[in-house]
Simulated assay, not measured.
Amino acid sequence: MTATSRPRLWWTTVAVGIVAVVVNLPWFNALLVSVKSDGDISRGALTLGTPTGDHYANALGAAGYDFPRFFLNSGLIALGAVALVLAIAVPSTYAAIRLGFGGRFILNASSALRLLPAIFFAVPYFLLMSNLGLLDSVVGLILANTFLNLPLAIILLGAGFRDVPVELEEAAAVDGANTYRILWSVLLPILAPTLVAVSVLVFIFSWNDYLFALVLSSSEATPITLGAANFVTSTGIRWGDISATTILSTLPPVLFAVFAQRFLVSGLSAGAVKG
């Protein structure tokens, strides 16, 4: 590193740090409010005062709401969507990229679907789940989040498959491997970073979903994103409880992304650089 590049790197680091702080200010504010007493919150006090854990106790069920079940529903929905998306996207993308099944049409259609706003699918999904008897069910929300995130998975996996030299598959075929063996034993280990990136993104998007949870659930399948609205009552908004619920609900996707960060970066960069 040259002497002239050090100041530039330092200023870049400072700029990125400032942007990171600004972007995360709402989260930091929610964290501060979650440990304030109701009196400090109502007065709009900027200082912390005496910290309290009452809001977290309420968020974990002390307020009379079944928040542990809300967290469980969110986990089941997110993990179920991840599993179903990978089960559909991996073979379908391989068929499109390597076997010529649908080819560019499938990838272009996936890109087009991903550009549409989620609200565009709300009414069709409601009618579909109603006809299937899956309203207010975890299975219905898993299917909805799968349909919504499948185009993104196909796009990322398509870039990953293109990066793998076709000579590896030809060599495996010469050794007697069939199509399924090539996919599962040769390609998927190479595409592990891309698979992790897809899993992380689908998990985060499914966990954070609010629109489809609002449209497709009412009580039994309520996830944590919708359950936090229980603290908006006829007597007022319980800001401390909502903030505590928000902090707790952000922990699983954040921890998931942190532990998978190395794979996430390499997976998202697949197809970006051509040798």
Rank of each mutant, 00 (worst) to 15 (best):
residue 153 A to P: 05
residue 155 I to A: 01
residue 155 I to T: 07
residue 155 I to R: 04
residue 156 L to S: 00
residue 156 L to N: 01
residue 158 G to Q: 06
residue 158 G to K: 02
residue 158 G to D: 02
residue 158 G to I: 02
residue 159 A to P: 07
residue 161 F to A: 03
residue 161 F to G: 01
residue 164 V to W: 04
residue 164 V to S: 00
residue 165 P to E: 11
residue 165 P to T: 08
residue 166 V to Q: 07
residue 174 V to F: 09
residue 175 D to K: 00
residue 177 A to D: 11
residue 179 T to F: 00
residue 180 Y to P: 00
residue 180 Y to V: 12
residue 180 Y to A: 11
residue 182 I to A: 07
residue 183 L to V: 12
residue 183 L to R: 06
residue 185 S to Y: 08
residue 186 V to W: 02
residue 187 L to N: 09
residue 187 L to G: 03
residue 189 P to K: 04
residue 190 I to Y: 13
residue 191 L to Q: 06
residue 191 L to C: 12
residue 191 L to P: 10
residue 192 A to L: 14
residue 193 P to N: 10
residue 193 P to H: 07
residue 193 P to R: 13
residue 195 L to H: 13
residue 195 L to S: 11
residue 195 L to G: 14
residue 195 L to P: 08
residue 195 L to W: 14
residue 196 V to D: 08
residue 197 A to H: 03
residue 198 V to N: 14
residue 200 V to Y: 15
residue 201 L to A: 05
residue 201 L to G: 02
residue 203 F to T: 07
residue 204 I to D: 13
residue 204 I to N: 15
residue 205 F to G: 11
residue 206 S to D: 05
residue 206 S to W: 05
residue 206 S to I: 06
residue 207 W to S: 11
residue 208 N to A: 15
residue 210 Y to V: 04
residue 211 L to C: 03
residue 213 A to P: 04
residue 214 L to P: 02
residue 216 L to S: 09
residue 217 S to F: 03
residue 219 S to R: 15
